[in-house]
Design a protein around this nucleic acid. Structure first.
Lengths: 198, 198
DNA sequence: AAGTTGATTGAACGGCGGTTCAGGACCGCG
DNA sequence: CGCGGTCCTGAACCGCCGTTCAATCAACTT
């Protein structure tokens, strides 16, 4: 099935990007990873650039769906926020795995200045996450479990904190790891939203 | 003078990286920017990779020296922290200027995974900034103008917040700009360190 | 069996760009 | 003036890699 092969190529491309970075990603690498000829990749994607852009977007999409699944099974605003934070922090085991989205995000950030299409995709995803956070906080205010003057401002703070800490974790800063990152995010959320500390 | 020419090349290289990104940076571009032959660049630097790594480190160094200068003229811990925050946030006018360090940091983050030398340099600079923050907080505790259980933890939070917000500002997220970024950083610092709001 | 269509490949093309090299220009010095 | 050293260049080399293309294969019609 042709759609399945496209997906397979996108996965392989995302993997190679995560391992080598966009600059050093060659079509031949992607092809080799799934045991096909480089020419076949150009049969499914019009150019290398398009493929890479689609691969990044694809991983973004997967991340967002994963978060959505976790959120669907959770009711209270406090728990939903907690789940969202945990899902956003890179677990220590995944750092060198090629399905770790964080590697791709670094690439996306540095590429999106030259590639308007990537810039749009990045903004779309970022905004989606912030909107989700803001909605959770709004829900929490209604439930009287959170206080916040400006949910969208809090969303900006939390998502940026996640980005910044995630960089340190991914780049293996000895001062922080996935667990400590979660703990920091929870504690900032607690103090900014006046949550009761468990 | 040969040292001056090296500096000139490093500046030009940093500029081109900021404009085009590392992937699209060609030796010919750097050469053209200062009106010399591409071969001359290889006369001063052993290879393209080395040059780019040195260029990134060079800009990092400049940033840190700039911060140090600002700090030198400031006495109280509260003011020093304020100065450090302001110096770290990208001013709106500088976003597209090729002397804006933020562009280079995005590149540095994505490259340092493949280049151990870059990784070391990145860590060195990051740690230096965090140490500076922690020292300021320790000073503030002694001056009785700040309270903080764990200065190095606060340093991690603030520097990560700066990184995360800086990304949004640089990539021109409509929800935030340099001024708002400063305001957020100041307010988080104030609440985490129990500063009196001015 | 012959024909049609889609998937796949090996091989070749072509350009780009880092690197090399042989030499030229300029300068100070004996 | 000639010599050596430093700075600099144009041109050529060379390998890499995205892309193209003609040909093959497999599967499914008719």
């Amino acid at each position: 099935m042709t759609e399945e092969r496209r997906r397979q190529i996108l996965e392989a491309a995302a993997g190679v990007i995560a391992e080598r970075g966009i600059c050093d990603t060659r079509i031949a690498d992607i092809a080799e990873k799934i045991g096909i000829s480089p020419a076949l990749i150009l049969y499914y994607f019009s150019s290398k650039d398009r493929l890479l852009a689609e691969a990044l977007a694809h991983r973004d999409q997967q991340f967002f769906e994963r978060v959505a699944v976790h959120l669907d099974g959770t009711e209270s605003a406090v728990d939903r926020l907690s789940v969202l934070i945990d899902a956003s922090c890179p677990p220590s085991e995944s750092l060198d795995r090629d399905d770790n989205e964080w590697q791709l995000w670094l690439e996306m950030w540095s590429r999106s200045r030259q590639d308007p299409e990537l810039a749009r995709e990045r903004f779309r995803m970022d905004e989606a996450l912030r909107t989700t956070i803001a909605e959770i906080v709004t829900q929490g205010i209604e439930e009287n479990t959170m206080t916040c003057k400006d949910p969208s401002r809090f969303a900006m703070i939390l998502s940026s904190l996640i980005d910044g800490l995630g960089i340190q974790v991914l780049l293996q800063d000895p001062g922080i790891d996935g667990e400590k990152m979660k703990e920091i995010c929870h504690s900032i959320a607690a103090s900014e939203l006046s949550l009761a500390t468990r």
